[in-house]
Amino acid sequence: MFGGEHKQTDIAQSAIFTTGSMRASRFYPAILFSFLIMYGDYSFDLSSKIRIFSSYIFSPFTQIEYLVEDSFNSFESYFSSQKKLSEEIDMLRNQLRDLENQNLVLQNTKTSLNELEELFDLSKSFQERKIILGKITDFKKFPKEILTVEIRSNNVTKDMIAFNAFGLIGVIDELLNNSIKVIPLHNESIKIPAKNSRTLENKIIVGTGKPKTFLIEEFKKNGDIKKGDEILSSGLGGRFPEGFLLGKVTEIKENDQSNFLQITVENTFDFSFGSTILFTKP
């Protein structure tokens, strides 16, 4: 009887006088703590770190679905005639991938061989001059076009000129240990003694800074020049060899306030083409 009374009292106390665990004295610090956590997350992105950590921890569980599916598939296919077929398909796929890789390698080799063939054809015109071959390792477009070429010879000098499969493409800008920096002929600082293959008239062409484009300096208005004229190196001054094609006349502009024509020469030589550069003295 007394136990029952005790229980009634206990229930009454619990029901009427309880204030629960969430008293204001605990509630306010908890809210403050939550705001602190929020600020911490906003400032230091704590939640993404926790998310990454939790995804790492729970990854075995999230992978279970795939693991079970894979296991089921392999179990099922083991007892079916499809297994052999799927194995054969996998084998053929691998063979196909290998063949594609071989094809790529052979294509690269073919391109390199073609390039070397062009270079060796070119080198025949150098007769007894010494030639040095180098591998292109880097090409920079900014702030100016520069090719970095790796060489294994110490006989390269700064007066040498650079050729690729197209022909004459640049001059040496800087000699470094085992490498050379080459700038293109169309660089603004380069002036090339040239001649018109039709009229044999000598002139100077200068680089414009734009790829494959040159200007003819101080060509008088009464001079003989036409669109399509081929401009060759004249060899004067000994800086560049004679007889190499530099480009064709593509534009002739007349200015009333000047006695000279503005003539543009363009070629199709790609400065950064290929993987090999040939150096020789002019």
């Binding site: 204001a24 509630f27 809210i31 939550s34 929020m38 704590l46 939640s47």
Partner: peptide, 23 residues
Amino acid sequence: DIFLGYLLGIHVVIFLLTSYFSQ
């Protein structure tokens, strides 16, 4: 907050308020 992609503490604040007023 973690699994639904909210800022940490967003759900906590509303849960604490709900608990306080429920009690």
